[in-house]
Design a protein around this nucleic acid. Structure first.
Length: 425
RNA sequence: GGAGAGGUGGCAGAGCGGUUGAAUGCACUGGUCUUGAAAACCAGCAAGGGUUAAUAGCCCUUCGUGGGUUCAAAUCCCACCCUCUCCGCCA
């Protein structure tokens, strides 16, 4: 959520910033609503004050045994007026809230202009795309030839966009997760978290997934539904919900491995084959809670931690700064890390690292105690994949493939694979 | 699933329907005292919102959540949520 104060005081600036995303903000409609809110709120609070005063004087009079009737008569209409005023205010406030929850975050000034993916700016490249001396197979062909990926079995059980993996390949994914968790906890100083995979709607409102992106989520039936998490970002970031971190408690660095569930509604034509885009996938997620003035530096650090995984795996990648039109709803700035996939002859996203500044913190009331003023203030939240395990698995298969269809195991993963050096049929 | 108990400020824990945003204790902050510390004593100490140039004043809201009764609700009524204990079941 954007600071409501900023929104009403600098409406034009906010609108201009959002316009960079291609988002049109109806400032006039907002301002007229805001004007009504102000009038109604002042009225209502005035009436509430009157009620409080009169109730107290009634109490006092009664205590002294005086006649109460004249007092009651004097405020005969107050109750009705107050009720009317309160409900009108409530209505306007909920309309404003709807608008505010629907607004994307303000972009950081360093975000490059642009409309879509094609305008993203490459920041750096690591490694060089591998030239295989034979025609590269994609992970689908490789996996099926090995007999270790079975999309048909998955579709019997659950339909499209699911995968069954077997034997060494299933283990390789587990090894990847293990390596990532170990690296982030041992080398990068993160605290590991195990968190719920089912969450309340309120948690998703906190991170910005709701109310706007309901269709992307899986929801359980029942009176109070649960949602399956689309990313560990949701439960982990919500650890700060309603919290006030005392001086010295920040920064916090958390890492969690979870499955992620996405309905992928609206992505019907894309990546329909293979494991790139699934309803369920494994991911290791990094989350930072930091003071406001530290978040931009933290974004660089966090991105570096994600990159370190790909470097350990010796997978060529590049880092791109998402352009204004491509930055996600709640983010102020995002770096995507894209890994080279020989099977597609393309860089594909394997991690997305974002600074949300106070956008999520405001929604979930995540604060810290300012050491100077002693007053609570919103923290900044960041998160990034470190990295997506399913896609990392694909990258290893395609980059480490041999002509005979076997797959070499990166040195960093061999200890997690019982010392094995390759996977073959 | 059955039976019971309970949800109040950072924690513990009071609270006859009426100057209660809330006693008291602990913790915390500042001060006095002390060579220093402890102890003792004094003072301060919730969050959110509105108004405003203001982190100054003033005002409003908040005692699990949502409704209701009332001039007035932490206190009464209803529903829901959550926690704890015992029994049953279960990985």
């Amino acid at each position: 959520m954007i600071d409501p104060k900023l929104l009403r005081q600098s409406t034009a600036d906010v609108a201009a910033n959002l316009a960079r995303r291609g988002y049109t903000f109806d400032a006039a409609a907002y301002l007229s609503l805001e004007e009504r809110r102000k009038a109604l709120q002042m009225d209502t609070e005035h009436l509430q004050g009157q009620r409080n005063k009169s109730a107290k004087s009634v109490g006092k009079a009664k205590a002294q045994g005086e006649d109460i009737q004249p007092l009651l008569l004097a405020i005969k209409d107050l109750g009705d007026q107050l009720a009317a005023s309160e409900s009108a205010l409530q209505e306007v406030q909920s309309q404003l809230k709807d608008i505010e929850l629907d607004l994307p975050n303000l972009l950081d000034a360093s975000v490059p202009d642009g409309r879509d993916e094609s305008d993203n700016a490459e920041v750096r490249q690591w490694g060089t795309p591998i030239e295989l001396p034979f025609d590269a197979r994609d992970h689908i062909e490789l996996g099926e030839n090995l007999g270790m990926i079975d999309f048909e079995a998955a579709s019997k059980i659950s339909g499209s966009r699911f995968t069954v993996m077997s034997g060494p390949l299933a283990r390789l994914q587990r090894a990847l997760i293990q390596l990532m968790l170990d690296t982030h906890t041992d080398k990068h100083g993160y605290e590991e978290k195990y968190v719920p995979y089912l969450v309340h709607a309120s948690a998703l409102v906190g991170t910005g997934n709701l109310p706007k992106f309901e269709k992307d989520l899986f929801r359980t039936s029942g009176e109070t539904p649960y949602y399956l998490i689309p990313t560990a970002e949701v439960p982990v970031t919500n650890l700060a919900q309603d919290a006030i971190f005392e001086v010295g408690e920040l920064p916090k660095h958390f890492v969690a491995h979870t499955p992620c569930f996405r309905s992928e509604a609206g992505s019907y034509g894309q990546d329909t084959k293979g494991m790139i885009r699934q309803h369920q996938f494994e991911k290791v997620e990094l989350v930072h809670f930091v003071a406001a003035d530290e978040s931009m530096a933290a974004l660089e650090t966090l991105t570096g931690h994600a990159e370190a995984i790909l470097q350990k795996l010796e997978l060529p990648y590049r880092v791109v700064a998402l352009c204004a039109g491509d930055v996600g709803f709640g983010a102020a700035k995002t770096y995507d890390i894209e890994v080279w996939l020989p099977g597609q002859q393309k860089y594909r996203e394997i991690s997305s690292c974002s600074n949300y500044n106070d956008f999520q913190a405001r929604r979930m009331k995540a604060r810290r105690r300012n050491p100077d003023s002693g007053k609570p203030e919103l923290i900044h939240t960041l998160n990034g994949s470190g990295v997506a395990a399913g896609r990392a698995l694909i990258a290893i298969m395609e980059n480490y493939q041999n002509e005979d269809g076997s797959i070499r195991i990166p040195i960093a993963l061999q200890p997690y694979m019982g010392g094995a050096e390759s996977i073959s049929a």
